[in-house]
Design a protein around this nucleic acid. Structure first.
Length: 173
DNA sequence: TGAGTGATTGACT
DNA sequence: GTCAATCACTCAT
């Protein structure tokens, strides 16, 4: 996931921060079983799981693991590459560093909403796509996930960032 | 049917 | 550093 390129229209960005969630993990939405909301995570990998959080923000996840085994990777931050003007228009912030440096910010910049839930990110037909990296990210740093309540595996080191792009990630720790 | 909760952000002190 | 905004979902009556 790190180093993958997210594309929508003219906009392109390189993913530099992600978090992983899986079925036996209390912080995973699918932890309590199959429900209408988590249905997409039970399908095949490569599809978008988008949900609304805190009544304010949309979050983009990529479904992982095989069908029947719910797991997902939350896309938390990316480095803007193309279509900066579109991102600036969608975000309305003065500094480019703030364009995609957080899951809610990234979703807003890419105009991602619940309407995008279930999109096949690996299909060339989709208007929201994910292109795998040509070169693997070499300097990967792992840490604990952000915003997880105590007792919900908040200490597992399943947050991964590109150590060479820390300035473009979200929370500094 | 209703209360509680949350994978956050940005404005304000 | 603190705090409000605001809604979908889940679980307990």
């Amino acid at each position: 996931m790190l180093g993958s390129i997210l594309i929508r229209g003219e906009m392109q960005a390189r993913i530099v921060e992600v978090e992983a969630y899986r079925s036996d993990d209390p912080a995973c939405h699918a932890f309590n079983g199959r429900t209408p909301r988590t249905e997409i995570m039970y399908g095949p990998p490569g599809f978008a799981y988008v949900y609304f959080n805190y009544g304010v923000h949309w979050m983009l996840n990529v479904v992982c693991h095989d069908a029947g085994d719910p797991a997902a990777v939350l896309v938390r931050a990316a480095v803007p590459m193309e279509g900066l003007d579109q991102m600036r228009a969608n975000r309305g912030v003065p500094r480019d560093r703030d364009l995609l440096s957080g899951p809610g910010k990234l979703a807003k910049a890419f105009a991602i909403t619940g309407a995008d839930n279930g999109i096949d990110l690996l299909s060339g037909q989709s208007n929201l796509r994910l292109i795998p990296p040509e070169v693997a990210t070499s300097n990967i740093v792992a840490g604990s996930r952000i915003g997880i309540a105590e007792g919900k595996w908040h200490d597992v080191p399943w947050r991964f960032i590109d150590g060479d792009a820390i300035a473009w990630t979200s929370v500094r720790r």
